[in-house]
C-alpha cells in the first residue's frame, strides 16, 4: 500500500519538476497575447465596465505588467485571477466567482427560466383544456382531408390568409 503512495508521489514529482523549471520564463518572453488572454477576464479598476485588455490607462498598464510577471513566474490564469480578486476585490472579475451570494446571478435566471417554462406550459395546457372542452373550431378551420392531388394545403392556407382567392 505504502509503496504505491511513494510511487505515486515520485511520479508526481517527476511530472511537476520539469514543468516547474519550464514554467520559469523571462518576463520578455511572455507575449502580449498571453497577457491579454488573462486581462480579458478582468475589468479596469478605475474606469468601470472596461475590460482590462483594452483599457489604455496607466493603472491598466501596470496591471498588465503584473500579469506578465506572474505568467513569467509560471502562474496559471485561474491563479492570477484569484490573486487579483484577493487584492483588489472580486469586482474586478468580469465573471462573478461562482460561490456564495454570487451564485444568485447564475441560479436566479435558471430558476426563473424553469418557473417561466412551468407557467408557460401550464397556461398552454389550461388553454388547451378549455379548447378540448368545447367543440373544436378547427374542424371548420383545417381543410377537410380531401383527396389531395397537387394542391399543397399549406399554400392553400397562405392563399386564404393573403386573400388571394377573394
Amino acid at each position: 500500500m505504502k509503496v504505491w503512495v511513494y510511487l505515486g508521489l515520485g511520479l508526481l514529482l517527476a511530472l511537476l519538476l520539469p514543468g516547474a523549471v519550464l514554467a520559469q520564463r523571462s518576463v520578455g518572453d511572455v507575449t502580449a497575447d498571453e497577457v491579454n488572454a488573462v486581462a480579458r477576464d478582468l475589468f479596469c479598476p478605475t474606469c468601470e465596465s472596461t475590460p482590462l485588455d483594452v483599457c489604455p490607462t496607466q493603472t491598466c498598464q501596470d496591471w498588465r505588467d503584473l500579469i506578465r510577471q506572474q505568467l513569467a513566474e509560471g502562474k496559471s490564469k485561474p491563479e492570477i485571477l484569484d490573486y487579483f480578486a484577493a487584492n483588489f476585490g472580486p469586482q474586478v472579475l468580469s465573471e462573478p466567482p461562482r460561490q456564495g451570494f454570487n451564485l444568485t446571478v447564475w441560479v436566479v435566471p435558471v430558476v426563473l427560466l424553469l418557473l417561466g417554462g412551468g407557467i408557460f406550459s401550464f397556461s398552454l395546457y389550461r388553454l388547451k383544456q378549455a379548447g378540448t372542452a368545447l367543440p373544436a373550431p378547427a374542424a371548420t378551420q383545417s381543410p377537410p382531408p380531401k383527396t389531395n392531388t397537387t394542391l399543397d394545403p399549406y399554400r392553400e392556407q397562405i392563399e386564404r390568409e393573403l386573400g388571394v382567392g377573394e
Binding site: 475589468f43 472580486p90 469586482q91 472579475l93 465573471e95 462573478p96 446571478v105
Partner: peptide
C-alpha cells in the same frame, strides 16, 4: 447591498 462589494457582471455571463 448583500455583500458590500459591487460585483460586476461582464460579457461571459
Amino acid at each position: 447591498l448583500v455583500t458590500g462589494e459591487k460585483m460586476n457582471v461582464g460579457e461571459p455571463y
